[in-house]
Design a protein around this nucleic acid. Structure first.
Lengths: 188, 188, 188, 188
DNA sequence: GATGAATGAGTGTTCATTCAT
DNA sequence: GATGAATGAACACTCATTCAT
């Protein structure tokens, strides 16, 4: 929605702590009380934003691989996508980590994040099982493997922001792919 | 310092955005203007806190392994420590991720984080090189391996907070250790 | 406006340095933040006040003499008015000199004052020229004469405030009138 | 004194309303409480400053003409000095008018100003009487004449600050001298 | 003769929110 | 569907001042 996307913008510019109703309204060239008119309170607005973030993440992080028929090709597609995931492309990092940090204190937000990751890990697990059935990879525990992949993805994204002069995205991708392949080749 | 530790406490309770000078002062049973007496501005106070966080992280994340003489034992110690790293023990997660999120917008803070990880990864790289020389592990590129370990650590910590009903710490530890061993046994 | 006139009042009672938004609001029995709602900043409020002062001065210091037809009578009217000008009647002295003092440091305020005096001196010059054409007075340089009259007016007003036991307004008036007449009779 | 001259400087830069003990202390690279140590209160400090201003004005505005023996030359000297008086030279205008404005609200300050002008006008009156006795000038009432001269001086100084592109000091001087001469030649 | 810790009232300003229109 | 007036609490920060050292 109009309001949420401006909320989003303000967080990027001023951080979560600097995102006030007045600033959002100013950016929209609209009266502050209008925002309150829609979202009764600021907390409700934050809730709306969190939902927006979760939805964006959820619908962008992994595409639907089911239309790829050849299992080998499909698994390679998964590896390709997974190793290249980066927040910046579909979700601003400041906004994402602000929401994540909020989840640490707010049980409601935490639940949403938990569900989100449950879903994504589930999808990953399905792909692993699918590849396993086709004898392309070999893992002991599909869920554990999916969690490990998720861990790698999040770790890589986290680490990327504290790296000296950026990160070579191709090299990073290769490294992640190699690691996953190593795991799936060795019955982890 | 007295002030910073109270700042820290308030962030835990109310988040970074809720940590005002007044609340910190109230927790200290002291007049708000006294805090300004020491740190001229709130920004300076934040800077002090960031430094405190960085120092805590830096001095707690990895111990000094050099006193362990047997290289094999030493590497196993490293694996043990690394696989068990958890923010919660020496650094509150909300505080840590608040600082991290701030680093995404503030170049000064970002620099401090970059240096921090540079140092930690360097230390990790030294341990890997040491184990390599003793023929305990086999890696192609010590720096890249160290980065991968770091990625795993950060990813695991990130993922832990969005897991359903907590995480079995022993299982998690085993998983990380296995993964690293897999990598270091296979010349990654 | 409502706000400015209360600002004005507070300056009279507490001086320019003592006129805070809170005090103005209290006098209006209104919340301080309401004043900020109208004038975004205090500086803007001061600017508004300066404008108000300038306008008051400008519209009260000299009436329109053009409706007096007989030139001699008209010039006598001018002399009468000019010799009797006193801040106190239409502009509080503290407020006026506060604004004047501010003009010494603030170029924007200074400009407004300059324009104001430019206008008043111009009007005075017109009257002098008018009387000159009717052969009632005799001056070399109408502008210089107008400036001299202005100097006398301001000087008299300044001096009045540092006089022992007030000033006999009739005597003062006579003195000013005499001096001007002396000048205009002697081709200054 | 050290403190007062720094107080003075701060007023020039930030106006009377901006001159706080902290800023003065900072300018002196000294602890604020030291200023309170000397002048118990800020009001006492202001009083000290006023005294300093009055003294400066009093001792600089008119020199001692008594050593000039020839009465004609002496009167010409008086005219020369009087027509050239300008605050800027020995007293900053902002500081002077700040003190003057304060005198309008504070009876104690007002008294000091009254005495000051009493003294200066008295000195002027003496010079006029002296010239009168030597038949150089011709005035009805020496006191009234002195007041008129004072009025001219203050008016000229006031007007100078609101003039467009400064004032031609030579022209201004001539104008004042002419006016005084006109008065003293015509038995005002 | 000077400092630094500490206070409490006050500064201008922003905050989320309410209400009447 | 939107505005503007109004509020009261909170914000970071400055003020003059006190006191102990």
């Amino acid at each position: 929605m109009e309001i949420l996307s401006h909320f989003y913008e303000v967080i990027i510019e001023e951080g979560f702590e600097g995102a006030s109703i007045a600033k959002i309204a100013e950016k929209m060239s609209v009266n502050p009380s209008l925002l309150i008119h829609y979202y009764k309170t600021k907390d409700a607005m934050i809730e709306g934003l969190i939902e927006h973030i979760i939805n964006t993440y959820s619908s962008h992080i992994l595409p639907d691989f089911s239309k790829v028929e050849d299992p080998k090709e499909r698994w390679e597609d998964v590896l390709d996508v997974v190793s290249r995931i980066q927040w910046g492309t579909f979700l601003n990092t400041t906004v994402f980590y602000s929401a994540y940090t909020l989840s640490l204190r707010d049980p409601g937000v935490k639940n949403k994040f938990t569900e989100l990751y449950e879903k994504v890990v589930g999808q990953l697990q399905d792909e692993i099982a699918h590849a396993q059935q086709a004898n392309i990879i070999q893992v002991k525990d599909t869920r554990q493997a999916a969690q490990l992949v998720m861990t790698l993805i999040e770790g890589a994204n986290f680490y990327q922001n504290v790296s000296h002069n950026g990160v070579d995205i191709e090299k990073r991708s290769r490294m992640i792919k190699e690691t996953i392949t190593l795991m799936t080749d060795n019955n982890i």
